[in-house]
Design a protein around this nucleic acid. Structure first.
Lengths: 134, 134
DNA sequence: TTAAAGTCTATTAATTTGGTGGACTAAGTA
DNA sequence: TACTTAGTCCACCAAATTAATAGACTTTAA
């Protein structure tokens, strides 16, 4: 499962994708429409901003807005920005790889099975973009 | 990612699958061979026993052993026993489904994308058995 | 100048991860 | 039989991470 934070992040960013190029969207609006605890959402949006997906405008009429093209931004990239690895085991992660302490990876069958599962799941998550979840 | 507990569970159960029908395997042996903290492993094996995958024999010469057929026990079933859902979102989980508070599932595109990702990943994890990770 | 936003820093609560201590159990052996 | 050893069983405890909250501060539009 994705972390709660990541589940919220995807909902929020999906909502913003639906309002792409329509100016800033207030955090309260997102929190209410997507049922996300306001202050938790604050952290999440700030993080997505730091990671380069969003920008914000302060003051009255301000809010958050997507700055990457929703037709080009994959679901996988959002998951990686918040949770890190998409793979089920560290030893099969492409972007957050960590070696196992107990096995020879060349021979390890666990590694092979989970690499296959990762590829299957990435085939979907890399291919689907924010446009696909509006 | 799977929880640490689940990562260990899969390694342990894979090890036991390799010794299927060879009598009890001591917890110390598993902990050393698979590099798992001894007492944490104890919890994990107990849980797998309660869930019906393992049994144990007490006293000298005792230990844990697999009681389900490793040719029939899927990787998915182990993951579900420890972590619960395999899907990335609760609203697309087959065995641990939870309704979203903020969307109409019929229309929700997030739901569709993640259901597709779940199916892709389950196609591997349901199909691969403990025999495949020995 | 005021009200409506986002920003930042801390703190609290819950869950996960890992560890302790000790009781209980079974088998071997003197 | 009694003792010893190797093992599971069980109920806590503590650190780390994740989830959620609180409140003071800054920026901007009207």
């Amino acid at each position: 499962m994705l972390s709660k934070k990541n589940q919220y992040a995807i909902k929020a960013v999906g909502y913003l994708a639906g309002k792409f190029n329509e100016g800033p969207v207030g955090i309260m609006e997102i929190a209410e429409k997507k049922n996300i605890p306001l202050k938790f959402l604050e952290n999440i949006l700030l993080e997505l901003k730091k990671k380069g997906f969003l920008d914000s405008k302060k003051g009255k009429g301000g809010g958050y807005f997507l700055i990457t093209d929703p037709a080009e931004t994959s679901i996988a990239s959002i998951i990686r920005a918040i949770d890190g690895p998409i793979a089920l085991l560290p030893c099969v992660s492409l972007y957050f790889y960590e070696k196992c302490s107990d096995c020879n990876e060349k021979k390890c069958k666990i590694n092979k099975v989970f690499a296959e599962a990762r590829d299957a799941s990435l085939a979907v998550l890399e291919n689907k973009k924010l446009n696909d979840i509006i």
